[in-house]
Design a binder for these strands. Structure first.
Lengths: 174, 174
DNA sequence: ATCATCTTTGACGTTTACGGAAGAGTATGG
DNA sequence: CCATACTCTTCCGTAAACGTCAAAGATGAT
């Protein structure tokens, strides 16, 4: 599954030269670039690969990792799921697995296996998507509520300040 | 700051008897009650105190912690911020610190010194509230965006399933 | 060929947020 | 007074998610 091995062309002018027809999988990026684009550290990226969040990247003849554009996107997604939703890597892995199933289904759909299998996959994928959507909704709800609180506080604070500024103090004199 | 030391009346009938006039700070709760009401563990609660999320609770003569109703509310808040918003304890601490500052300013305001002092306090409080609001807004924004993605995926997944169910395959025949 | 960077694989260290057990003391119904 | 249940502090352990060297090799530019 997944043919992805040491390619022949590692470097290929990274910075302006748009390769003419002939490339099959787009440009590949070295660790440094990916680090810059994702804001992650090399260690983190390697760790993600280690725990199976990414399929092992292809390598140069010397052993340097080469990431595809899809890898970069995946890493950005991972970071978002982590920081925005507070997902653990395990949860993220599950999420990505669902995505993979979705992609598989799309492919399988086109390559048509049997309907029962596809339905089974869909049925398993849906509740997970559902629960995640629910989780997002709940979080948005709570955050919105919290936001309202803070906004009200800010408003009151400003009102107070204005009152003081206009000399409209609670106790004018004694 | 904060007068809060070993009180004289620890037990005082916890479960039905509403104390008549005379209590100044409401009923105090033992660890077990707090645990039941918050769903937290004693260890976690002690840990929160240890890292300064709560001001150290008062104690019985023997050293048992006694929590106020405010403590319980705070613990519930902590749990919410943690599980629902995915805040780290550090972030929660910061949030609570802001709240404390706000409360302090409110007190100072009510105890009214001169107008200049009050204005100064308000001016210092505002940017903090502002940044908190901005943080929440950003989070809500990203979450909403993520939500849209998920909703779309779910919709597509359902569409696919329906297509399969109705036998509406891509290739009807060859 | 050579130097300055990068990258790799270990391997061990660190932080966060508690869990769990030990040993001792406290609270309380009977 | 006593048994039983709770609680205290202390200290060690842990799982997750990397951080941080170290030693060695790989790349790219000069």
């Amino acid at each position: 599954m997944h043919i992805k091995e040491t390619p022949a062309e590692p470097g290929h002018a990274p910075g302006g030269g748009i390769g003419f027809a002939g490339e099959l999988e787009g440009p590949l990026h070295r660790m440094e670039d990916v680090v810059k684009r994702t804001g992650l550290t090399p260690r983190a990226i390697r760790y993600y690969e280690e725990v199976g969040l990414l399929t092992a990247a292809s390598r140069t003849a010397g052993g340097f990792r080469l990431f595809t554009e899809a890898d970069v996107a995946l890493l950005q997604r991972i970071k978002e799921l982590q920081t925005l939703l507070g997902f653990s890597l395990a949860e993220i892995k599950e999420t990505l697995r669902i995505d993979a199933v979705r992609a598989e289904i799309r492919q399988a759909y086109e390559q048509a296996t049997d309907a029962r299998t596809r339905l089974g996959l869909l049925d398993r994928a849906e509740p997970v998507l559902h629960s995640q959507l629910a989780l997002i909704d709940e979080r948005v709800g709570r955050l919105t509520q919290l936001r309202t609180e803070y906004a009200e506080r800010l408003a009151r604070l400003r009102t107070l300040r204005e009152q003081i500024r206009t000399g409209d103090a609670t106790e004018p004199a004694r």
